[in-house]
């Protein structure tokens, strides 16, 4: 299960634990005067599925975006496969990474967004092919075959020539997942992948994610779907007000949470779900 320990020549900064794929250390993020992330430490091993839960505004999405370097941390750092993201050591000094270097790291990370973010001017299959063709320089024929295979995997091969506007939310999200997978990432980030979907469409997306988990993908999932999290995650991380408040395997955290805030949050979630269930 080891990965990335003494791997690429880009190993810099601290020496990672042998099998940790993602290492977040003392991460802080401020937007103006507001501190959104405070001193977050997180470690994800290769093949691990970590679900991040918590109330809105707790910083879950910001944490994910910092890992993807879509936001620059105010302090602290992120390492992926032993390589620091966003910074590098040049002659002993810490210097910002160039656009191109960050892009290279991102080829190993896949991200699925809440609002899908498919490219509207391209068909489903063109969306999926785009990364391999333009970034990995894969020949078109090969990329097309790969794209079709991935679309088949998410159950949308028959819609491969459809434009995003003609697809339902659930279908768009599945295409988005296929698009990320086309880059053969080591790590998949899911930012509330089902929050923008109509309830009846959530299941089809969760099924794809479940399948992915079974295949051994390392996944960081920000979600409100507690049932799914309990099912799929190896570890649950509970965040509140920008900090990681509680952590543990699902059966511990969900069934017998020790931390009072975790208890309060789960109680509120259960109440909400109970009310929803009462709807005839």
């Amino acid at each position: 299960m080891g990965s990335g320990a003494d791997g690429p020549s880009g190993v810099q900064g601290q020496s990672p634990w042998p099998s940790s794929l993602v290492r977040v250390t003392a991460l802080c993020k401020r937007f103006g005067d507001t501190e959104v992330l405070t001193n977050v430490d997180l470690e994800v091993r290769a093949g691990e599925k970590v679900a991040i839960i918590g109330p809105s505004g707790s910083g879950k999405t910001t944490l994910l975006r910092c890992i993807a370097h879509l936001e620059k941390p105010s302090s602290g750092h992120v390492s992926i496969a032993g390589e620091r993201v966003g910074e590098k050591l040049v002659g002993g000094r810490v210097v910002e990474m160039t656009d191109r270097e960050i892009a290279r790291i991102r080829t190993g990370i896949g991200m699925v967004f809440q609002r899908f973010n498919l490219f509207p001017h391209l068909t489903a299959i063109e969306n999926v092919m785009l990364g391999p063709v333009k970034v990995l320089r894969t020949p078109r024929r090969e990329a097309e075959a790969l794209a079709l295979e991935l679309l088949r995997k998410v159950g949308l091969a028959h819609k491969c020539h459809a434009y995003p506007e003609r697809l339902s939310g659930g279908q768009q999200q599945r295409v988005a997942i296929a698009r990320s997978l086309a880059m053969r990432p080591k790590l998949m980030l899911f930012d509330e992948a089902t929050s923008a979907l109509d309830p009846e469409l959530i299941g089809e997306v969760l099924n794809v994610m479940r399948q992915l988990a079974l295949e051994g993908m390392t996944m960081l999932i920000v979600t409100h779907e507690m049932g799914f999290a309990e099912d799929v995650a190896d570890r649950i991380v509970f965040m509140d007000h920008g900090r990681i408040v509680d952590e543990g395997p699902p059966h511990e955290l969900f069934r017998s949470p020790s931390h009072p805030r975790t208890q309060a949050f789960l109680r509120a979630v259960l109440e909400r779900q109970a009310m929803a269930a009462e709807v005839p």
Binding site: R106, H121, G131, R179
Partner: peptide, 27 residues
């Protein structure tokens, strides 16, 4: 062009210039 698309392009490993050329400009 919606920022989300640009971020999706970044996550596919595109640089800012590539994203501009391939995703933003055509639209």
């Amino acid at each position: 062009i919606h920022q989300g698309q640009i971020e999706a392009a970044y996550m596919l490993g595109m640089t800012r210039m590539m994203g501009l050329r391939i995703i933003v400009l055509p639209q």
